[in-house]
Design a protein around this nucleic acid. Structure first.
Length: 350
DNA sequence: AACGCGGGGTG
DNA sequence: CACCCAGCGTT
């Protein structure tokens, strides 16, 4: 429909390129070892894939090493308290992933004897594993011949086919075109295509002279590949404003509490604050004290910009309920998202 | 099908 | 600044 009688993707050329130029990554089995029969550990592949959802390789590396050091197998991760997983995940974002990660580990141990399912369909039934992640694990670990389609591939394929509409409107056509190209070395092919997107066919640059599928690329033939993928119309980012209250007791400990079970930053740790709204509310201090305005923290979420006024005071802890007092030196061990680490820093802590 | 959901790297 | 990243679950 949207694809003009495309040239098939040259999988042998892609694999040959991968054999020489694969990125070395902590969770990856290099192609030479894979050829000798070394199989990737599904636990490590799964963990890396969940961390890599909407997250860059550079950001994931340290978290991956930390997690695999603390919890080398799915059994240790399943036995860990959810709170410990959230603490370690803090800073990586999209915290539903951490809750689903733990739930998935528990399910694999409880329902599958600690062995991950070996098909994309079986994997997709687990928490936090969707179309992309199930395909990626099945291909990389078990060479299931399934199309592995992520954001990198959206871009590579949109260029290869000079796709005239936003990717969302042609997703299944792209999937079918990719599926038709998947070779027996399905795992290496999937990783090769993603490496291609990350290192050659990058968002702002396209090093077409190095690309193994340049001969069939419609965008290169037409001129400038970087005009693809066509962007959908973008929504404006609204501003929300609010207050954050950093309370200290006479010992210098800071008052923390847990956010609600659902919504933004669910179940993570915070300092008390106001609602966030388009107009800045009047301050409403949660306890008596000599409140001082410490400054403003600006934090960009995907769908809005947040401006928080940061206040601090030494208070008498009357009427406070549900939270706890933390020593400033122990804040690293709290499940604090980056937003609230900025707030605490603005108030002079950590 | 559209939306909510973090944070950091990059140009 | 804007853009985008090895997406998923909910509605």
């Amino acid at each position: 429909m949207h694809l003009p009688s495309p040239a098939p993707i040259d999988a042998p050329a892609v694999l040959d390129w991968y054999d020489h130029h694969a990125r070395s990554l902590p969770w990856r089995v290099p192609p030479a070892e894979r050829a000798r029969g070394v199989a990737p550990d599904p636990y490590r592949v799964w963990l890396s894939e969940v961390m890599l959802q909407q997250t860059t390789v550079a950001a994931v590396k340290t978290y991956f090493l930390r997690f695999t050091s603390l919890w080398p197998t799915v059994f240790e991760l399943a036995a860990a308290p959810l709170e410990a997983v959230l603490v370690e995940w803090a800073g990586l974002g999209y915290y539903a992933r951490a809750r689903n990660l733990h739930a998935c580990a528990v399910a694999v141990v409880r329902d599958h004897g600690g062995v991950f399912p070996t098909t994309s369909a079986g994997l997709q039934a687990l928490p936090g594993i969707g179309a992309y992640t199930s395909a990626a694990i099945a291909a990389i670990c078990f060479d299931e011949r399934v199309a592995v389609l992520d954001g990198n591939l959206d871009r590579v394929l949109a260029r290869y086919f000079a796709l005239a509409v936003p990717v969302r409107e042609a997703k299944e056509e792209l999937r079918a075109a990719l599926q038709a190209a998947v070779p027996a070395r399905a795992g290496d092919f999937a990783q090769a295509m993603m490496d291609l997107g990350a290192t050659i066919c990058a968002p702002r640059t396209a090093l077409c002279m190095l690309c193994p599928i340049q001969p069939g690329c419609a965008a290169t033939a037409a001129g400038d590949p970087t005009i693809y993928p066509v962007k959908p119309v973008k929504a404006e980012r609204p501003v929300r404003k609010g207050h954050a209250y950093v309370m200290l007791d006479s010992a210098g400990d800071v008052y923390l509490q847990t956010r609600p079970d659902k919504g933004l930053l669910a179940q993570m740790t915070e300092v008390p604050g106001s609602d966030w709204s388009a107009a800045l509310p009047e301050p409403s201090y949660p306890a008596q004290g000599a409140w001082r305005h410490r400054g403003q923290v600006v934090h960009i979420f995907t769908h809005f910009r947040l401006e928080l006024e940061v206040w601090s005071a030494e208070v008498t802890p009357d009427g406070l309920d549900g939270g706890w007092w933390a020593e400033p030196g122990a804040l690293a061990g709290e499940a604090l998202p980056t937003l609230f680490r900025k707030v605490l820093a603005e108030a002079g802590l950590q």
